[in-house]
Design a binder for these strands. Structure first.
Lengths: 211, 211
DNA sequence: GCATAATAGGACCGATCGGTCCTAATTTCA
DNA sequence: TGAAATTAGGACCGATCGGTCCTATTATGC
């Protein structure tokens, strides 16, 4: 992959994340990426749509390398990793001052019904995300009580996080995401064996009862 | 309110819900609403943007009258109402064959960062929604254990539902929403007093542990 | 040293868009 | 019965858009 092309995709990712794919013109992408003009842009990309797909790939690749990497940390207990992962997402929303939501959620919200190609790729992205969460939850299955389905729990976690980022973006209030992060940890904690809500047990998933 | 204007807004709501506000042209809105042409459209609305706001108001008004009305049913126990409310959302996703997501989530995802007017109104909409959930949860507070914050729990429920509708829309799988609905009920059930996950207790919030 | 790639900086195209303005017919209302 | 509202059915406008095509210079690689 040419480093210049990657730099262009990164610059485009930032702008598209901020304004949405349709509300970002090729001219604006050219300026953001420091290209000289249309020829330059179309030298690297067949079309705006192709860039859109590359942006999605790039964002997921970074998310997998950075965000989801926490889930694969062998030196940390599985549920501690999940807690850290949630903390990372909460911290990111705070860093961004509650703006821009989730790159995947944004694209999904904008294009899922009007662009089948994007919808399918986003479907895969979310399934891969949920799949990695499921893998982690399976590692912790001995800590779970009877009847916990890692796959279902994983989907719920993705939904809650995406919904949290959407609400945070609309309300412009990072505290919203912080609260949802805490509650989500509390939710996961309710799946543990021998858990008594009235007893305070130290650990990231033993919060003060979805407070 | 003129009945014809209302009918136009309803037709527009369906199309905008399906394609998104920006991907729906005034010409398409004219056809969908059975208007004769641009003059006709601009007779009723100052601009496309004005129609957009009316659509949002209309959708929230209907949601309040139908969806959220369940939460205010005096003859049903508070938590039973919540369960019914969740069931309604799950059923609606199934009815729509997992398409179109949430009208508010869709608009939020598309316009929250690019149209401050819509973002503000959507912020109010979500706060009103969460506020009504909070009111209901306060009615059930005697059933909750120590340390449950209705406001926070309400926000979490909204986030999980919105996230669930987004995921359902992207995956085109209504089972996704059904699972999230069940898990959400299970989660609310964990806030109850004297609840033992290993004991099966009849009731909408005593599911087989987030199965 | 030369061919190729990258960069430069657009003009221009057809298409689409929101909105204005037009003539005209029909319906409604007082 | 006549004025006003609604309906009819656009043409047209300026703006924006994605993309093609153009001349030209500079940088790179062999």
């Amino acid at each position: 992959m040419q480093p210049r092309r990657t730099a262009i995709i990164d610059a485009a990712a930032r702008l598209i994340n901020e304004r949405g794919f349709s509300h970002t013109s090729v001219d604006e992408l050219i300026v953001a990426a420091g290209l000289s003009g249309k020829s330059h842009f179309y030298h690297y990309f067949k079309s705006k749509e192709e860039l859109g797909f590359e942006v999605l790939e790039r964002q997921f690749s970074r998310f997998a390398d950075r965000g989801l990497a926490i889930l694969r940390e062998p030196m940390i207990e599985p549920l501690d990793r999940l807690s850290l992962f949630i903390d990372t997402i909460v911290a990111l929303q705070r860093e961004r001052d509650a703006r821009n939501g989730s790159p995947f959620g944004n694209l999904a919200g904008e294009l899922a019904d009007s662009h089948e190609g994007f919808r399918k790729r986003l479907d895969e992205v979310f399934r891969q995300w949920a799949g990695q969460l499921e893998t982690l939850l399976k590692e912790a299955v001995s800590q779970f009580r009877e009847g916990v389905h890692p796959g279902r729990l994983a989907l719920f976690i993705v939904a809650a996080l995406e919904g949290g980022m959407l609400l945070t973006r609309v309300t412009r209030d990072a505290v919203v995401m912080a609260g949802i992060g805490e509650d989500l940890k509390g939710f996961v904690a309710t799946h543990l064996r021998n858990r008594h809500p009235e007893r305070q047990i130290a650990g990231p998933f033993e919060t003060e009862g979805a407070q």
